[in-house]
Design a binder for these strands. Structure first.
Length: 107
DNA sequence: TCGGTGACGCGTT
DNA sequence: GAACGCGCCACCG
């Protein structure tokens, strides 16, 4: 299966392991995969994702806010999905990373 | 093979 | 604290 050929597969697999009610940053995923500088590639992977099994909405930027801007899905959709899982936003529409950020080694 | 693109991150102003 | 610019890595044509 030529699956490992895609860096995306690794990203999707890692993102799939994010527990409900928690969020992670692009740079964090890149770091977990061994490429802290590949945050952009991670964002690209999210753009390419089309599986509903992947909690792409749990991946946000280091600023704790949603960027997006494409037709794929509006920021309000991601915000709604996160709120539906119990994640709360500030008045500026930002997420408290120190509260909701999840670390696989942080257990 | 090469260039352009993109849901980012960090440093500086 | 916010905004701007450069650099980073991976994928597509």
């Amino acid at each position: 299966m030529t699956k490992r050929s895609g860096f995306y597969e690794q990203v999707w697999a890692w993102v799939r392991g994010i527990p409900k009610g928690k969020v992670v940053t692009y740079g964090q995923v890149a770091t977990a995969l061994g490429t802290p500088r590949a945050a952009r590639a991670v964002g690209y992977a999210m753009y390419s994702v089309c599986d509903e099994d992947i909690p792409w909405h749990r991946v946000i930027n280091s600023k704790g806010q949603i960027s997006l801007g494409g037709q794929l899905a509006r920021p309000e959709l991601q915000r709604q999905l996160l709120v539906q899982e119990g994640v709360q936003f500030d008045h500026q529409g930002r997420i408290e990373l120190k509260v909701y950020q999840w670390w696989p080694e942080s257990h």
